[in-house]
Amino acid sequence: MARLIINGTPRDIEVDPDTPLLWVIREQIGLTGTKYGCGVAACGACTIHIDGVATRSCALPVSAVEPDQQITTIEGLSPDSSHPVQQAWLALDVPQCGYCQAGMIMAAAGLLMQNPNPADEDINAEITNICRCGTYNRVRAAIKLAAKAGEATQRG
């Protein structure tokens, strides 16, 4: 039995402690927005937040998560796609096939929480998710747009 707080809701789950958090989220909680891409934390499709920190969930055993840690998935980033990153993604029409995009959005939101105004080098260092369709340049532009929107919110 494991207790997890996912998108603000505590969940008690019967699970083998070695199960990667990704599969608990997808198959036991039933939230499938977080994707499997590699299983070795190389591609970032499985990125979620743990206490606000972008984390790859596919190689993280569920037993490594403390019962009081806050897990946020793409479904919980905002109730209505209104998070500044999601809004920037919409404004620039970022996704192509979209499969990697939940991970991209979570990685970008995590970056902006740590660094509200990231330079290109910061984006390069932190956003190492793989996209095969080729959305990288729009991802970069959308992160900058979201950063600007965040600045405006803070000022306003």
Partner: peptide, 21 residues
Amino acid sequence: LPRLDTADKLNGSQVYGTDLK
């Protein structure tokens, strides 16, 4: 024009084959 399939790709609601239930 913007794509017709963007909204569901921003919040996890787009169902891919791997997500089917």
